[in-house]
Design a protein around this nucleic acid. Structure first.
Length: 189
DNA sequence: GGAACGATTGAT
DNA sequence: TCAATCGTTCCT
């Protein structure tokens, strides 16, 4: 596996959300393939950045290719990757991952055995990888970062585009993307 | 200072 | 369909 370039993340967020499909998330022994993403844009009422920069969402306004991890519902973390130009306030939510390596460790972290249920949701994959706010705002291209994004062999697949899940405002926008026929996406619909 | 809410999940 | 559970944001 090879690192991605910074320019990969500097592009418009919808393109990055699509291009991230099939890329790999690496943390220690654990490796997974990104199979489902959602784009969160500027002027997008569903985005945390909609009302401007705050302490929580500040990574969204920082450099691209960084992690933005937030805590929600009093018990869950969600993992995003920052995109586009610095200062803009856009990111891609990673919604589902296909476990590739470190499955036993992921099972321990999730306290379940079913492989299909390990990373098929935004808060499930953070639990499987044990991502918390300690991993917030890391440079995912830095080889010293514990959390990294890598590319593997080129792979061909069809991308399905749908409305985003769980959002109230902006629910009409088709900004969710996933790999067609993949068995590890969230909420098979 | 206080209230309302949420890019979810798992159990009922 | 609903409870769990608390940090963040926004209002007073």
């Amino acid at each position: 596996m090879k690192p991605l370039s910074k320019s990969f993340f500097k592009k418009d967020t919808i393109s990055v959300a699509r291009n991230l499909l099939g890329k790999y998330l690496v943390l220690g022994k654990k490796i997974g393939k990104i199979v489902e993403t959602e784009a969160y844009l500027i002027n997008d009422p569903a985005s945390h950045s909609f009302n401007g920069k705050t302490i929580r969402n500040s990574p969204m306004f920082g450099d691209p290719a960084h992690s933005y991890i937030y805590f929600t519902y009093g018990m869950h973390h969600c993992f995003n990757i920052t995109t586009n130009k610095k200062g803009l306030g856009e990111a891609v939510l990673i919604r589902a991952i296909e476990p590739i390596k470190g499955l036993e460790e992921m099972k321990k972290s999730r306290r379940i055995d079913n492989i299909k249920n390990l990373c098929n949701g935004p808060a499930k994959l953070t639990q499987a990888f044990e991502l918390t706010k300690s991993h917030n705002n890391l440079n995912l291209l830095d080889k010293n970062s514990p959390l990294k994004i890598m590319k593997g062999e080129k792979e061909k697949f069809k991308i399905i585009k749908t409305k985003r899940i769980g959002v109230k405002k902006g629910s009409d926008l088709n900004l969710r993307f996933y790999i067609d026929k993949n068995l590890f996406i969230s909420k098979l619909r």
